[in-house]
Amino acid sequence: MQAIKVNVNGDVRDAMVEPDESLLQFVRERLQLTGTKEGCSTGYCGACTVLVDGEPVNACLFFAVDADRRHVTTVEGLSGSDGTLATLQRCFIEAAALQCGFCTPGMLLAAAALLERTPSPSEHEVRAALSGNICRCTGYQPIIKAVQSAAQALRREGASAPPRTPQRVQARA
């Protein structure tokens, strides 16, 4: 077991983890944050996508120990602390960008990362950014629309990005 300190959705969590424990197991089993989904465990469906220091990663392929002293954002961290939905989440609802909802958490985080670096993405850029996330239900079209309307709304709001800008966890000696 190895000690790690991870900022998950704004809370600093200290934990002991197995050296081969995935970040997916860590958030789902140790932290009981079950919003992050497991679809394949091999890096091919994107259902487990979370952000590590703002970058989308497949949590099933990412070791929990490698998240030590970093910021992790899961779907539970997208909405405000008072529960208000993020613009991106609202746009997903309004565009009917989900059916079964199993791909949704991963899609949201992949899209959030895109909007963080590319505030006005073209349709192709949206499709490319989401191409590691499989959705079997929607045919993708409403998801693309949701991301584009979120981009527009965020530009209007003047906000730079939906998720909190990640900052490295300050290591306490």
């Binding site: 609802i93 989900l98 909802g101 199993f102 949704t104 949201l108």
Partner: peptide
Amino acid sequence: VRPDAAAKVRGETVYVAD
């Protein structure tokens, strides 16, 4: 809007493995 949509975008929907 689907009544189950808000829980789904919040990651609160419970599937068997959850």
